[in-house]
Amino acid sequence: MNQDQSVIEVTHMVHKYGRTEAVNDLSLRVGRGKCYGFFGRNGAGKTTTIKCLLNLLRPAAGSVRVFGLDPARDEVGVKSRLAYVPDYVAFYPWMTVRNVLDYLASFRPRWNRRTESELLGQFRLDPTQKARALSRGQKTQLALTAAICAEPELLVLDEPTSGLDPIVRREFIQTVIGAYQEADPGNRTVFVSTHLISEFEGLIDEFTIIEGGRAALTLGADEARARYKRIRARFASEAPAVDFPQAKQVRREGRELELTVNGHSEEILERLRALAPEELTTEALTLEEIFVAALK
């Protein structure tokens, strides 16, 4: 494998729709076996980037490599090794669930029947049901089942949970990724775009936040939680009017002070302790809160 362990490597990629730059000088690298989050608001350039990975769109500049290959020149070489689930899936309406799976399996060198029946059971999908009768959530479940049964080296998911209700969502993504990583986890890479970040909190190893077509932040999840913190201090009387230039955000409310920080937390804590607060607490931000803080 060239490019050593990267499964996806995007360098200085640009894509324009007419004069509008949807992706502007984006670079990112996804390592083998990682679960990589691609976070951004609607219109940030997530889907455009994914389409460039799949040669559904051609970048205007920069380069895209998947498994070290150029998807535009080696389309089959790339696509035969990955599975892609778009944010809105459609099947031939007259096919049954069984027909859909058999049809999709016919394009694949491998198909794991055991995973198939396991997931159909867990999602309570009836193989005899016609695709036209499936709800949006069921269609997504069927598409994900099909994606995983093919045992690809890379799973590309574009907003996979957006059509599902909040209770089903978390359970479901856990099941899917658990089943996907079951065999040969070192060779199972996930690239998932979403703006519903909290569901992926524990799954993500590393992420990029995209904003206005550019990478606003790329970090490991543990590293991000170690850097982004919320510090709260309560004082015996009115909170002192001290400046904290290193904090990203400072809120003052009577005797309380709340600081959102990105790094420098030890120095800030040291300064706060010198002010002798009654209580001083620190907690890490969740990935969703980090997303919000990074875009402010």
Binding site: G33, K34, C35, R170, Q174, T175, I177, G178, Q181, E182, P185, E201, G202, L203, I204, D205
Partner: peptide
């Protein structure tokens, strides 16, 4: 590994 990962809602790699 897998049941624990699913129960804790974390990545299998993290448990491994």
């Amino acid at each position: 590994i897998r049941p624990l990962a699913e129960e804790l809602r974390i990545n299998r790699n993290t448990v491994a």
